[in-house]
Structure formats: C-alpha cells, structure tokens
Design a protein around this nucleic acid. Sequence first.
DNA 1: TTACTGCGGATTTTCGAAATAATCAAACCT
DNA 2: AGGTTTGATTATTTCGAAAATCCGCAGTAA
Lengths: 244, 244
Amino acid sequence: MSTTLRPAGETRAGDVLARMRSDIISCALKPGTKLRFETLKEMYEVSFSTLREALSRLVAEGLVVAEGQRGFLVAPVSLFDLNDLTDVRVLIERQCIKLAIERGDDRWEADIMANFHRMDRLQSRLGASYYLSDDWAALHSAFHLSLVVACGSPNLLEFRQKLFERAHRYRRMSSQFRPQWRAKDVEHKMIMDRVIARDTATAQDLIERHIRETTENVIAHASHLFAQGGSGESFKRTDPVAAE
Amino acid sequence: MSTTLRPAGETRAGDVLARMRSDIISCALKPGTKLRFETLKEMYEVSFSTLREALSRLVAEGLVVAEGQRGFLVAPVSLFDLNDLTDVRVLIERQCIKLAIERGDDRWEADIMANFHRMDRLQSRLGASYYLSDDWAALHSAFHLSLVVACGSPNLLEFRQKLFERAHRYRRMSSQFRPQWRAKDVEHKMIMDRVIARDTATAQDLIERHIRETTENVIAHASHLFAQGGSGESFKRTDPVAAE
DNA sequence: TTACTGCGGATTTTCGAAATAATCAAACCT
DNA sequence: AGGTTTGATTATTTCGAAAATCCGCAGTAA
C-alpha cells in the first residue's frame, strides 16, 4: 500500500541500520571512510534523523566511530585491533562454552545439531564458494550462537555477539582474497561433538584454535589492506582509551 | 551569549545523555519506567531528535531498553541481572588486572597512586556520607579505571566500563538504605598495594572479593526494590537472548 | 458472555529546513 | 616569507511539525 513495505514491526531506521551494517561488514563502505550525510541520504534514501539513529547504533556496535562534532567514520581496521579483538573473543567464548556445557539441557543439544545441519546443507548446496554467501554467514553465526546460548548470561552473550560481528568484517576481508577457505566444516563438526559430549576443556581449546587460526589466516592474506603503519599515509593515533 | 552555554566541544545531545545517565543511575528515573517523549522534552528542554539520539546511546549502554516501535523503558533491575552482571564483571576485571600488571609501566603505577590519593582526600573531606557524592563516585570510577588502564585492550576496557556503570546503579540503590558503607577504603588500599607489587593472583582475588561483597551488600539491603519474582506484579519474562 | 472489528486519541517515528559549528583559503599583518 | 585572522563554504546538529503506528474502547455479531 505505502511506498515502502516494511516486514511489519520493523522501523525504517532498523532497516537502514541492517543495510549499513551489511555494507560495512562487506567493505562496500571501506574502513576509515568519512560518512557524509548528503552521500548517505542518497544511498539509503532516508532523511538526516533516520541516518543519525542508525549511525548512533552502529557506533555502539563498534562498526562506526563518532568524531566529536566532526561527523562519523567507518571504524578503521588495524592489526592491533584484530589482535585485541581475537584475544577478547577467546576469553569470552571460552567462558560461554564452559557455562553452556554446565547449564545446557537436551533441547539445547538438539538445537545445536539442527543449526549445524542447516549450515552444512547450505554449504553443500552452494559448493566451493559458500564463504561468500550472506545466507551462509547468517547460518554460521546462528550455529556458533547455538553452541553457547545455554550459558544463560545475557551480558556475556551481548558482548560475544558484538565481537563476533566486528570480527566478521575481518573474515570477509580475507575471504575476498582466499578462494578456498580452510576446512572449517570439519572443525565445526569436531567442536559440536566435544560440546555435546560435555568435554569442556577440549571444546574450549577447539574453539580457541578455531578463532585464532581464522585470525592468522586474515593476517596472512589481508593485512595489506590495513591502514596501519607502512606508508604512514592515513595513519591515525589510536587513543588507548577514550574514557570520558 | 546564547541561552545555553555549552562547555565547548560538547554537543547538546551529549549533555542530555550525561544528565539522563546520571538520573537513571541515581534512580531519579526509576527502573522499568516508561520514557515518554513529551515528559522528557519538558524535563531536559530539548527536542525529539536530540532526545532520540541520547536514548539510542543509553540503549547501547544497557541503561535503557527499546521496545520495537513502542518507545523506550528505563532498564529494569532484577536479582538475576545483578548476579549476571557480577559474574561477568569478575571475569573481565580479573583479565584486565592480569594484563595491566604484565604490561603496566612506572607512569601507570604513579597514576594509580595519584588517583587513590584524590579519592582518599575527598573521602576525608566529605566525612561519613562520601558514598552519596557524585564527585566521589567519579573519583572512585577513575581510581578503578587507573588500576586496569594499562591492560592495553580497548575492547576489554570498553566492556569493563559499560559493566561498571550498569553496576553503579545497583550500588546507588543500596547506599540509599545503608548509611555506613563497609570499609571500602581499606580494601582499595590493599588492592592498590598488591597491584603495584605485581602480585597478580592476590590482586585478582581481592578485586573479585571487592566486587562480590558489594553485590552481596546490595542484595541484603536493596533487593526488595527489585521488580523480580515475589509479588509477581510487574514481572516480565527475561528473554535469554534477543539475537536478531 | 465472548470474540472480532473499526474508530479516536495518544505516542512514536520520520522528515526537511533552520541554526550551529568546523574547514579551507585568501588577504592581512609582522 | 611565515604565520595569523577573517570570511565564505561546507557539513553537522537541532528543531518542531507532519506522517505513521499503536492502544484502548465501544459497538456488533456469534
């Protein structure tokens, strides 16, 4: 009926938010880019206020940074940031797994298997280039979430999700250059097995390796894209803390 | 010159944000309250857009929750939330302390002592009711930050700060009913000593006890304010995960 | 009585223009 | 010539009204 048909219950700002997030993660909006309102208004066909709303939320997710009253920037990528992200993810994810194994019930186990199956099936259907599919990425995200959702800690899950999305951008950067990703599917199956077997220590170690190896892969194949050091062109001092 | 004289470099939205945060933490805006724009517009003397900006950011900080297109709510408090908050804080804080002790230099040690001194001096000056002072709370926050700032992890520090502020609201709730807080000042000194002595294990344990005892204190004196369980009046199911 | 439907008031969300602040460059003084 | 101030231009932030949405209630039918 109206010009825009929204999925019902979703705001326009929420829609723009999702599209911008996707564009940032896929690097259609390059790291470090200045986000000008006029440009974005054309791109997403919304007004100032709606953009501002979406931008605010992306700042919270760490995908956009605000520069005082000098506008917004796509969050830069750097080796330092990637390494920090990885270390914190390992800490959080290990704790999530531990608690989930302690607290998870049968329904949780079933849910993990269901999510793995969906991801696995789509992977087969897509063939060699599954890692470029946004649909697969969504199922991959859902699978990893299902592993830890039983930890029962909203705060832990909130932070975990934020970190997962920030890391997703780095994964995308590397998959762009690396036609065949490593045999992640085998790792996924092993992790699932150990989690369901309630083998906490092994499950934690497998997850940690899963995360760290992905990071190493990114560094090996995509670190040349980072704005850091090197030519010193678009170098920005990285405030250690912006504690207000 | 103009009606409002801003501290230069600060936006109006930032100002409203700070005032609302303060009002939520001090419970001038009670947990679970619906935040109506008309009311807030009068209260803070700003327009819709500016409010929306501030609200968005408070959602990110976890002090406000957004309900689809049905507006905003002051984040409810509950025993469950407090316990989860406490557990996650312990995890993060222990890691921060560990890394800070590994990586901190002389300047960091000096900074800790300076911050302790300022907090300690104000405490003496204010006498028995220091725990009700917003100024003291700011110095207390700065002292705890200084202990861990040398960990060098922006992500860890970001999460730590968010958790600290969410917890601050609970602390305020209890201090309202508990005229004399426990001898926190002695604990602070012990923690500082062990951190500067680079005694990682003991420092971690002291911090953990510091956090957990405060939580127990809150539960003992203020849990009757929580909306949870009991009378079952304003009970809300706590979605384990709102993963989108 | 109970469930469904359509109206009216209240509230939130979106819009685009107006006000405010920052940037850049040319002209000015030292 | 080097550095600083001024003024024009661009970009962001704020505003209040208009559009869209939600909620409660009355009226109707089963």
